[in-house]
Write a protein that binds this DNA or RNA. Structure first.
Lengths: 253, 253
DNA sequence: GTTGACAACTTGTCTATACAAGATGTATTA
DNA sequence: TAATACATCTTGTATAGACAAGTTGTCAAC
């Protein structure tokens, strides 16, 4: 009996509302709940999943936040058409995760892997002392064309060393799955700039064409800043899709 | 007694957790809860606001989503440094709201206001029939320099007419405050493109410089699509800041 | 026929309670 | 001294219940 309980816990692994959320999301993706129709009411879902209404509501508000549904008081939860924003660049997503979802023939070439100092001025980040880091520079090639240069600065205080084979694979899955770090949130800015000579050559750019630069700082769940990233995109290969809910700017006086 | 009750309701206007959320947000902004410190525990906040823990937790998760705080199980809620992402372009925010928060000398010139059909192909939007709309083209000038061209297509089925004086002011406050529409969510894509001759002239662009194009579709709370917007930005004046929480891509098999 | 009241649905807010699980200091024990 | 166990904080999950508020159809009254 105890063993059974343990196994049950293990197979669940997630909270009840997480399981429900994923189940509903999958049903939406697979057309069990088609676009434009209403989900079963919260009370019906309670019966379906044999749970309380607050638990159902937690699952639904996660789906709301992700743009799967829109709730209308007095009527129900309507399924939105998400076919057009499948590219979740808005969240924190690694290159490898992206090309898995996008079905592209992608390749990563590691250009550099060495100790360095974080160029904090680039990130508009004020720091009294130098921040030692592992510097990784990589070129992303999709369908034979160079598309992105990624420059990662991984803070040494948090992660001592990054093996070469990891750099050519996925940093994120190494951090999360192998080291067990919990990546939690990031800030990100997008600007358009003139490329350096090196960038121009690597990306095979015509003369005088600009590049899109995405700079981000990534934090762990305990608020430790552990990574600075600079991504140089070919402008003609760059696209950023977003789903946003309206939040009024509120003022006090 | 009845009058007093009414007044009380009116001054509240929002839900309890909304009021608490705003209060805590303001206290963070004004340094009552400084960056890097912990908020009072959820139970202490219950006493402070004389409410239940679930209500406090709703307020806190809103603050979590907006990047004000990070919660750590077993420890508490820590205040994040939000000084560097005050530019909430990620949400749906109008030009006027933006320049109010940013303290710039801004001006809007209405170039066109006429009936038109939505160029759905630009928005990658498939529609069997033409969508009649009011077309508004505006040039945004900040500190004497042309910065953005905004092209709005406002669907006639939802909003019959847009007065001229509204076009030169704020569309959003007209929709929300005057017409009482509830703007709920939007999709948005960012790309880099070559400008048309007209765009090049209006934005006073050097030869061969690209522009940043932000295209969005905006929906009401009842999921009605009511607005298509195309914003042409001078690349050197464009900056997009984002705060994102990590969401793992989960797969079923 | 039109209007209005009402019932029966929906989601939204709020409370009170319980236990699980992570963090941390303080004893007790080996 | 070092390790362990425990008490006591914290946040996380789940439940059951109550009432408010928006939506819609029905039925009665005019």
């Amino acid at each position: 009996m105890k063993a059974f309980y343990r196994k049950d816990v293990k197979s669940a692994l997630k909270s009840k509302y997480d399981v429900i959320q994923l189940d509903i999301a999958n049903k939406i993706i697979h057309g069990v709940y088609p676009t434009g129709t209403f989900l079963p009411s919260e009370n019906q879902l309670c019966d379906l999943y044999n749970t309380s209404r607050e638990t159902i509501r937690k699952a639904l508000s996660a789906l709301l936040e992700q743009g799967f549904i829109q709730k209308i008081q007095g009527k129900g939860s309507i399924v939105l058409d998400l076919s057009r924003f499948v590219f979740p660049v808005s969240g924190i997503t690694s290159f490898k995760e992206l090309n898995q979802t996008q079905n592209m023939r992608a390749e990563t070439r590691v250009l550099k892997l060495e100790d360095s100092i974080v160029p904090t001025q680039l990130f508009n980040f004020e720091s009294a002392t130098d921040i030692p880091a592992t510097f990784i520079e990589r070129l992303r090639v999709v369908n034979g064309e160079p598309v992105v240069i990624d420059r990662d600065y991984i803070v040494k205080d948090v992660i001592d060393e990054v093996p070469m084979n990891v750099a050519s694979d996925s940093l994120y899955s190494y951090f999360e799955d192998t080291l067990g770090l919990e990546i939690s949130y990031a800030t990100k800015t997008i600007t358009v700039e003139s490329p350096s000579h090196q960038e121009q050559q690597l990306l095979d750019l015509p003369f005088d064409k600009d590049v899109v630069v995405v700079r981000s700082e990534t934090y762990l769940a305990d608020t430790t800043l552990f990574q600075f990233t600079e991504s140089i995109h070919r402008a003609d290969k760059f696209s950023f899709a977003d789903f946003a809910r309206r939040k009024k700017i509120k003022k006090e006086h």
